[in-house]
């Protein structure tokens, strides 16, 4: 099954989004590591966002693999954030005493975006952060990458 499974690595502005799903076996983890680091280099992003909403299990082996990817990405000037962890997993990891070194955490994808400098820009109240607004509708919401 792992021959066919390909985890998407999606570039969004200055970050790479990797939505992890299902079961990640050793082979998949290794390919993922290579693909991610290679893409970090080619896209020159400064942040890597691993979404684990689709994961049902995270064990010590997986945490070690993640920490390894994060450490390597850091050497390339890229910061790693993980988001979407289920409460059961968080509780289990904490009880086991496992740590995710080199990895920042966020509750949701939205919050992770916010921490990594991507936010929303709304109407006339925030002129200073909008580059230029289309004046047609004062209530219009625009999404914009704002480097903070």
């Amino acid at each position: 099954m792992s021959d066919q499974t390909r985890i998407p690595i999606i570039k969004i502005w200055h970050l790479l989004l990797v939505p992890l799903q299902g079961q990640i076996d050793d082979e998949l983890a290794e390919r993922l590591r290579e693909d991610i680091l290679s893409k970090v280099q080619s896209t020159e992003v400064s942040a890597l966002l691993l979404d684990v909403t689709g994961l049902w299990l995270m064990d010590s082996h997986f945490c070690a693999a993640l920490s390894q990817i994060a450490a390597a990405a850091r050497l390339m000037g890229c910061e790693t954030v993980i988001c979407g962890m289920a409460p059961e997993i968080a509780l289990t990891l904490q009880t086991m005493g496992l740590e995710l070194t080199n990895v920042g955490t966020a509750l949701s994808l939205e919050q992770a975006f916010s921490e990594l400098g991507i936010g929303t820009v709304t109407g006339p109240e925030s002129w200073e952060s909008a580059s230029d607004l289309d004046g047609s509708d004062p209530g219009q919401i625009q999404y914009e990458a704002v480097r903070r």
């Binding site: 079961q23 049902w56 299990l57 064990d59 059961e88 997993i89 509780l91 289990t92 009880t95």
Partner: peptide, 28 residues
């Protein structure tokens, strides 16, 4: 083994957090 563990835990009507623990132990 993990798929089977998950199936069994659900069959035994275990709570989500207990299922998580058992599956993690099996995985380790």
């Amino acid at each position: 083994a993990l798929s089977e563990t998950r199936r069994l835990c659900q069959h035994w009507r275990m709570r989500a957090i207990s299922q998580q623990k058992v599956a993690t132990v099996v995985s380790e």
